[in-house]
Write a protein that binds this DNA or RNA. Structure first.
Length: 242
DNA sequence: TCTGCATGAAAAA
DNA sequence: TTTTCCTGCAGAG
């Protein structure tokens, strides 16, 4: 397949991959690894702004800043604005995987290490859930929503939380994130809790607290609160999550 | 045209 | 703890 870097930021990496075969793709938390064989892995992390687009050939007119294009005779894929886009070797890959925690979406991962880290930490659970070395894959939306579903206040200290509650949160994250993968959409509300019980959740009823500052909690009607925690906005219901 | 903001994280200080 | 990097979009002026 062909690989190039229109905006030049990935020119060197693209030249290492161009003309090779893509053997496999895998995800570990928020990190994506593309196996191009012979110790050449394309490591992508989308960060806040990263976006993929893809389609059938021919290639559409190019516009905006484009980090990478990958294409064959039949199809194309393009990547813009990622936090990471680099070619790494086997040793780099091992170091990367060693510094991230268990991933709820990976079938064989277990929460034991996350339970240890959290119960031993004096940091707040809202901060710990954003730490990719504790649990890999949870971001700002799922942090807020998982804590609401668990009835845990984001400011609770790790040491104050029962191991069983952390295992329950792990299991819930696995269920909610698997739904997200299946539906390609982050819906964290249960149908029975939504004001409008239509088949598909309305846009404004997909989350319990995320981006709902000042609006009434679906469960108790209390106004949702917002604050900054671990440099990101966190949302919670002060009544349901005391 | 300009500003601020967004599902993030690493480097610098 | 602050700064930096990555991109696109909405809303203000």
């Amino acid at each position: 397949m062909h690989v190039d870097a229109p905006n030049g930021r990935f020119a060197e990496g693209a030249s290492l991959l161009d003309g090779r075969m893509l053997l496999a793709i895998d995800a570990y938390g928020k990190h994506l690894l593309y196996d191009f064989g012979d110790e050449r892995w394309l490591h992508v992390h989308l960060g806040l702004f990263g976006k993929f687009r893809s389609g059938a050939m021919p290639y559409p007119p190019m516009q905006g800043a484009l980090r990478v294009r990958i294409w064959t005779d039949a199809a194309w894929l393009e990547l813009r604005g990622p936090t990471a886009c680099e070619v790494i070797d086997d040793a780099d890959r091992r170091r990367l995987l060693a510094r991230i925690g268990p991933d709820p979406l990976r079938a064989h991962d277990r929460p034991a290490r996350a339970v240890e880290r959290i119960t031993a930490s004096r940091a707040q659970i809202g901060t710990l859930l954003m730490d990719q070395s504790v649990i890999a894959g949870i971001g700002n939306v799922y942090r807020a929503e998982l804590l609401f579903r668990a009835k845990l206040n984001p400011y609770r200290l790790g040491t104050s939380i029962e191991p069983a509650a952390i295992v329950a949160l792990w299991r819930d994250s696995r269920a909610v994130m698997r739904d997200g993968v299946r539906d390609r959409r982050m819906v964290t509300t249960k149908p029975k809790d939504r004001p409008h019980r239509t088949g598909v959740a309305r846009r404004d009823e997909r989350h319990y607290v995320y981006h709902r500052t000042g609006r009434p909690c679906f469960i108790c009607g209390t106004e949702i609160e917002q604050a900054l925690l671990a440099t990101r906005k966190v949302y919670w219901c002060p009544h349901c999550q005391p």
